[in-house]
Write a protein that binds this DNA or RNA. Sequence first.
RNA 1: CGGGACGUAGCUCAGCCUGGUAGAGCACUUGGUUUGGGACCAAGACGUCGCAGGUUCAAAUCCUGUCGUCCCGACCA
Length: 574
Amino acid sequence: MRWSQYFIPTLKESPADAEILSHKLLLRAGLVRKLTGGLYTFLPLGLRALKKIENIIREEMNRAGAVEVLMPALQPPEIWQQSGRYETAKDVLYKVKDRANKEWVLGPTHEEVITTLAAGEISSYRQMPRNFYQIQVKFRDEIRPRFGLMRAKEFIMKDAYSFDATDEGAMVSYRRMYEAYARIFNRCGLKHFPVEADTGVIGGSHSHEFMVPAETGENDVVYCAACGYAANVEKATSGLPATAARDAGQGPEKFPTPGVVTIEALVKAPYNVPANRQIKTLIFIADSQPLIVLMRGDDQLNETKLMARTGATAARPATAEEIYALLGAHPGSLGAVAGTLRQPVSILADERLKGANDMTTGANEDGFHLKGVSIERDIKVTSWLDLRTVTAGEPCPKCTKPLKIQRAIEVGHVFKLGTKYSQKLNAFFLDAEGKSKPCVMGCYGIGVTRTLQAVIEQCNDKDGIIWPLAVAPFQVCITPLVVAPDSAVMQLAEKIYRELSAAGVEVILDDRDERPGVKFKDADLVGFPLRLGIGEKSLAKGEVELKPRAAALVPVKAEEAVAKIRELLSASPA
RNA sequence: CGGGACGUAGCUCAGCCUGGUAGAGCACUUGGUUUGGGACCAAGACGUCGCAGGUUCAAAUCCUGUCGUCCCGACCA
């Protein structure tokens, strides 16, 4: 490819709305352009890198036994109603109407479609295991698209769906995808690690996310450097002991606390109640039912855990009005001690409060608190659950060494789904005994466009992108410093260009009549793994200059350049 | 959806407070000089100042509304 015939609109300055480095580089290196918030056009260079990633994914999915299909992006709402996600996923669903005013949805994912396919095609255990995948555009009505391709309204995803006759079979399929994912991200040149994850609205029993460590990520990952435990903070637990028992005392005692509505205020004089001796009372509305959630004063509720543990499809903090109507007090004076509640309400307590006594909590009367509360004696807890958010430094749940927290970008997610979709969408088969059973499913996603940006986020320096060879849009950039067709420099450049092209090397010839500085800066910005500089000075010595993007320049005899480049390309990990 | 900021040339931004001829740098066009890390000189082209109302003799500037963008939060396979 000749640079002058290609389209690489590089930018010296970053557009003002690009926030994170990878987003700026995406724009500056001429890989993408924004149409509007959350919607991007891929320019030739960006498309090439994207296709590289797609092909790595294809190769590894095929190798893992999955077969490629392509499902419609436009889907009938009926199957979404059937799965129940027309309601539970309604916030992300784009809906459109046709001229007959019939409604359609733009697919945010394809469980419904693939399960409908399986329902029609799979009727015997002999037809399984089966794994279908596609690389498709997804549409999600994101509340707030951001960071370029990281969180967009329309993005490219690889999604795969496995169908098995048994639970054990499904675990094998899951494992196989898990391993394929590790290979895919390795080949993309990404540092990554798998973590235990919450299954969310999609449902299922077993789940890992593949994370790329990056400060600009939107996930917090809890991990243990000693034993390898790693989990999304939405799921992570720790080995912290329950609250220390003290003398239980006589029973709750009311005391005035005018104006005190925070944990912090109660910690201070004259009250001097440490946060770990307070019970925090939170009111949630889960699937329109009020819930009391009790946490230790120094702990933070994890709403994802709350949803997961209660099975609620929607939960939100209650409003001040709802709280007053329920408990007769305002936030800051709330409690769950039996006798202070005017009506029965489910009470969920965090396990860390088990056995806690001599605690202080709100009296459900503005301006008053209760001290000397023994949680198991004085509060009718409906269920004990792990609801707290793990913080850095807590003991690992497996080996008790201190946990660490790292920001990360989620690039892949594997789920063992079970039979949730197969049952609702009638994907049943006959087993060896002739009994009808639902297929056991798994689903496996990779954010392809997000992975592209994650590579850039991880592989760069002050001058621009440093593409890993396997995903670089071009492997080599030839930079002749003189472009006059009859010059020795250009003639050599053309010759090497022809030879490399003939050898199957992906090479771009910067034939622009620009000053050397401009060409060097552009090549660094775009980040070609190898650059071959050809100028009059070194050519006078019979040499050309080989400059790996991330290493020092090496002079090479002109006639050895092609062989040297091929050697470097084949030596690097694919 | 709540809080905040910002919309001026293709890009980065000044001008707005205190109303009166719309600006700079980069990019672009032409000519010349240059030519090993984003050249220099000269001459040019490029704007309904996001949009709609209002106030005023006069609005980029003040007021109202609206749309869009970004940030924080909420929310989010």
